[in-house]
Design a binder for these strands. Structure first.
Lengths: 343, 343
DNA sequence: TTCATTTTTTTACATGCGTAAAATTATTTG
DNA sequence: CAAATAATTTTACGCATGTAAAAAAATGAA
């Protein structure tokens, strides 16, 4: 392949025997030209290896084919996993994903949005930090570019929100724990960085009340996103202190649970549902590592795929229709109970 | 701020009272204009919120300010962590990082390079998949754009390689294990996707021989990047089979060790250095989760920061000097022993 | 074959910037 | 203050594409 070197679309058009506008049309949508034309262009493409200059394209198009994806923390495999799904769907739809991570920092989140702005994306998918996010900056951004939020919501921002039905999922696991043993206490951070945690707290309380049990919150100190470390420290403190009001612990998320289990192990406390176990621990999210904890963690699985699909589909609809949504749509997926051996 | 709306550099130049070329010069390098000019432009910048069109800039510059970062698998927190460091350094150097992940698939790795090509990056940092990488495609890519490899090497590709000194690190932990107990057997995949694994195998063998012990490899089946799962299955099989030739196991990496520990726990085998323990397990990499395994994992820490810094610095030097390296430089950092309680 | 329809070509202009050379103006130095 | 130097402006062109309108050509149906 590649006889002479092709510099631009003009030369490629000449080489392939068509005019530049026709070739341009082909690149914007191969189906917009006659089949015979398409085939001849594609044959030429094999021969001459030319690709349109992406900068010139993006400069002149009304819309770029870029879709920004900003996640709260790529170092958390949960986000990496959902980002992977989202990226795949974006590529399949013929767009180009631009993945950026806030790495837990509000400043970096703001910088990420700022950086995306200059790229003029057709749309953006955002998993915001939550409590520490700059909400005003975020809303201002969403006014300018179509945005769909996932995992975490920012009130009055974006075209839509796609997330987990915490009420259902927490209700489900509280139900399970109550009918299979003692009613759980709720292990969480006093001041969680993540709004989901607040929803889960509320869901826990209402579920317990619904079942006629008294809710008991264990709220541990800690700041930031090092949930395992925070959970470890909180659990160590809790487990060496006075006796627990219940032998069952529901953690606000799997990462706290991972820290909790590590602490319990270190304290020599046997966790699980076996006869020799003195504590049951459950988590939430079905974190990629939760199947390798000791013992394996009973948890609630978020439906990564569905959340990714719905988010991307919703954004693409907004982009295609070329008009902003007048009402903010909110889609919540149910969690699925994943029973392993920790509870 | 922002009185009228500024569309382009022409309008902004007029608004700020300079000519467009002067303003253009400022944006390319603020220090290339007189201080008073710089200050007036910056004042205007506050007032009018304008930012240059990144596509027009990149189209006309000799070089873009983009630096591609392609990692083997973002879903592995090790890569996420090193990517975070690299991204930060790139931003600090005034470039824009473009992060893409192969997610363990050679096709996606090739696609990633292809996608980066169209972005005309000033340079690229690559942590290749290794064994399954398309070496020819990779070398062809490196001919076109300055590339530095990290974590994994591809022979005869790229300007430089920055990684870990497996010989030193494995030697160190073998030394430690031998002097504190029985000589370790080596737990690894039969056909690892990652070339580092081969180096570690060799390093293990030579270290054992140096210390007068017979090397013993336990090579488990499995394909792909689900190391925890592969380690879990391999360990389960191994631990339920005939008695082990040693009570000490060195895993080729932490993710295998995480699976191993999970399996040992399930088998009721107590791992650690305590008196009631029957097995010692060590890993390698100081994976973010290795401090929360049960028991906490003794391992070798890779120096994320140094690897990231050296990689970025090397690439920037190539970019700045505007000439390709004639010799391929290879930098290996020593690992550090992280003693926890698993061995 | 003829006519209506679709596709392609031609022509022309727009986009938002980089950059080079020459002319001008401002600043610094002696 | 004049000369030397540095910064800025003017002018002009280039980059690689999108896009719109009118003209021409190809295609398909009767």
């Amino acid at each position: 392949m590649s006889d002479p070197k092709i510099k631009n679309m003009e030369e490629f058009a000449t080489a392939s025997g068509f005019s530049r506008p026709t070739v341009s049309k082909y690149f914007n949508d191969p189906n917009s030209v006659r089949k015979s034309t398409r085939e001849r262009i594609e044959a030429a493409l094999e021969q001459f290896d030319y690709r349109p200059n992406i900068y010139a394209m993006n400069q002149n198009r009304r819309q770029t084919k870029n879709i920004g994806v900003v996640v709260a923390n790529l170092a958390d495999p949960f986000f990496a996993e959902i980002a992977r799904n989202i990226e795949r769907l974006i590529v399949e739809a013929g767009f180009r994903p631009i993945l950026v991570s806030s790495y837990g920092s509000p400043e970096q989140e703001a910088d990420a949005l700022d950086g995306l702005r200059s790229i003029k994306p057709a749309g953006v998918l955002i998993a915001p930090l939550g409590r520490s996010s700059d909400r005003d900056a975020m809303r201002a951004f969403c006014d300018d570019v179509p945005s769909v939020f996932f995992d975490n919501e920012i009130e009055n921002a974006g075209e839509a929100f796609v997330g987990l039905n915490n009420h259902q999922s927490i209700g489900m696991i509280v139900d399970y724990l109550c009918r299979s043993g003692e009613a759980p206490i709720f292990f969480e951070m006093k001041l969680p960085p993540n709004p989901n945690a607040f929803k889960r707290r509320k869901a826990y309380i209402s579920s317990m009340e619904r079942l006629g049990h008294e809710p008991r919150l264990v709220q541990i100190d800690g700041d930031g996103w090092d949930f395992e470390e925070i959970g470890f420290r909180g659990a160590t403190e809790m487990l060496t202190g006075r006796p627990l009001p219940s032998d069952t612990v529901l953690c606000s998320n799997d990462r706290l649970a991972i820290g909790f289990l590590s602490a319990a192990y270190e304290q020599g406390i046997r966790v699980g549902i076996g006869p020799d176990c003195t504590l049951r621990v459950a988590g939430h999210d079905d974190h990629p590592f939760s199947r390798f904890t000791c013992p394996k963690l009973t948890t609630v699985a978020q439906d990564y795929r569905s959340i990714a699909e719905k988010s991307v589909r919703t954004l693409l609809e907004v982009i295609d229709s070329d008009r902003r949504a007048e009402t903010r749509e909110s889609t919540l997926f149910d969690g699925k109970l994943v029973m392993r051996c920790s509870a």
